[in-house]
Structure formats: structure tokens, C-alpha cells
Simulated assay, not measured.
Amino acid sequence: MICGTDEAGRGPVAGPVVAAAVILDPNQPIAGINDSKKLSEKKRLQLSEEIKAKALYWAIAQCDAVEIDELNILQASLLAMQRAVEGLGVTPSKVLVDGNKLPKLAVPAEAIVGGDGIEACIGAASILAKVERDRQMLEWHQHYPQYDFAKHKGYPTKFHLEVLAQQGPCPIHRRSFGPVTRALAQRSTDELSG
């Protein structure tokens, strides 16, 4: 009952940070699991379905932009992982966490730097988290198409930062992040001088 947990979405300036927790079935190994960033989108989607079908237990949780602004991105990431582990509906014997910090858990846990490329259960969690976050950003694109979330998923690309500067942030932008703070400051300056 070893659980792996990982998050996706620490770097973007918009959208939630999403975490997953996975307990794989040793009798149903899944080929090709790796750090989600090293897999193509097509491969991630395929593996995500296989993980959900074959894992003993899995759960997905998140912290939205408001919580990220209140807590900071590190604490929000850890809280999302804690929520995912608690959402499994079963108590794992141990939790393996990607990175060098541990969420607050009631069970033994170990932080492993680069764990998503070493431990299959962490890699599986990284895939579920990334696929779910990307799915949500595609949905947000429908609400706020001007930002083109479908393309950059909320990461601070040149285009995203230009639109942010012109239009200001939308409700899913993380107001505590530098580019969003600067866009807000610029807009209030423009309004005062306008």
C-alpha cells in the first residue's frame, strides 16, 4: 500500500495547482510511466486512462488561485497533495512525495527529489495531476479565450504576458505572482492617468 503523490502547476501564473495520489497494483504493472513532463500529451492521456483503470486507488485534489494567493504556491502544492492522499479512501502504509518537502500527513512519508522519474507510483500521480490540470485549463479557455489558455495552460509565455498586460487578469490569475501583480499595478496606473 505504497502511495505516490505529485503536483502539476507550480509554474503557471493562472489556474489551480493540481495534485494526485496513486496506489498502484503490483499485479497489474503499467508500462511507460515516467515524469509527466517527459511524455507527449498523447502518451499522458493514454497512461492516465490506464492508471485509473488499473491502480488500486487514486485521487485528485487541488488548490485554486485564491488559495495559492493566500497560502503561497509551495504551501498550496503541499495542501493539494495532502488532500489527494486523504481523498484515497484508504490509509496507505507509506507515502512517497516528489520533491524535497512533505505535506502534512498522518502516515510515514518520504520526499524524493526527481521521484516522478524514479518511483512508478509518483510518476503515475504526476501524469494524473498534469492531465487533470490541462483538462481544466482547456475548460477555462472556453470562458476566457482571449488569454489562449488552451495553448500555454497558464504558463507565462510571451503571448500570455502581453495579453495580461493589455487586458489585466481574469478570476483564475494568481494575483500574488509577479507578472499578474505588475499587470494589476500597470492597469491602476493607466486608470489614474487616463
Rank of each mutant, 00 (worst) to 15 (best):
V180P: 04
I73S: 00
E86C: 12
S93Y: 08
G194T: 11
A165G: 08
G15K: 09
L161P: 03
K130A: 10
D148Y: 05
A53T: 10
V22I: 07
G15R: 12
A55C: 15
V113N: 12
K52P: 08
L105W: 08
C121I: 04
E191K: 13
P156Y: 15
Y144G: 04
I122K: 01
Y147C: 04
G11W: 02
Q75F: 13
P29W: 02
N27E: 15
T189D: 12
V107S: 06
E41V: 04
I68V: 11
R44F: 03
N27W: 08
V22R: 00
K151H: 13
L78T: 00
G115E: 09
I30G: 02
P103E: 11
A106R: 12
K130N: 10
A65T: 06
Y57S: 04
I127P: 02
W140N: 11
H152L: 05
E7N: 12
Q62I: 00
R135Y: 09
I60V: 15
M1P: 02
A165T: 15
G32S: 05
L56C: 12
L138Q: 13
T91L: 14
D64R: 01
P169L: 02
F177S: 00
R133T: 07
A84N: 06
S176D: 05
L138S: 04
L138D: 12
E49L: 14
A76N: 09
R182N: 04
E7C: 12
G178K: 05
L24C: 08
P26Q: 10
A129H: 08
A53K: 15
A21T: 04
A109E: 01
H141F: 06
I33M: 01
G114L: 08
K130Q: 10
E162H: 15
L105H: 12
N100L: 13
I73D: 00
T91C: 05
K94Y: 00
N34K: 03
W140D: 10
A65M: 06
P26I: 09
E110R: 04
L102H: 11
T5E: 09
V97T: 03
C121D: 05
A120C: 14
L88K: 08
P171N: 07
L128I: 10
Q46N: 04
L78H: 04
D190A: 15
G89M: 07
A21E: 07
Y155I: 14
M137I: 06
A185K: 11
L88H: 06
A129I: 09
P16Y: 09
Q146H: 13
E86L: 14
L88I: 01
K38G: 02
A165H: 14
L56F: 03
C121Y: 02
A150M: 11
D25C: 15
V22P: 02
V95K: 08
Q62T: 00
L102V: 08
G15N: 12
E67F: 03
D134F: 06
H143V: 04
K52V: 02
P12A: 14
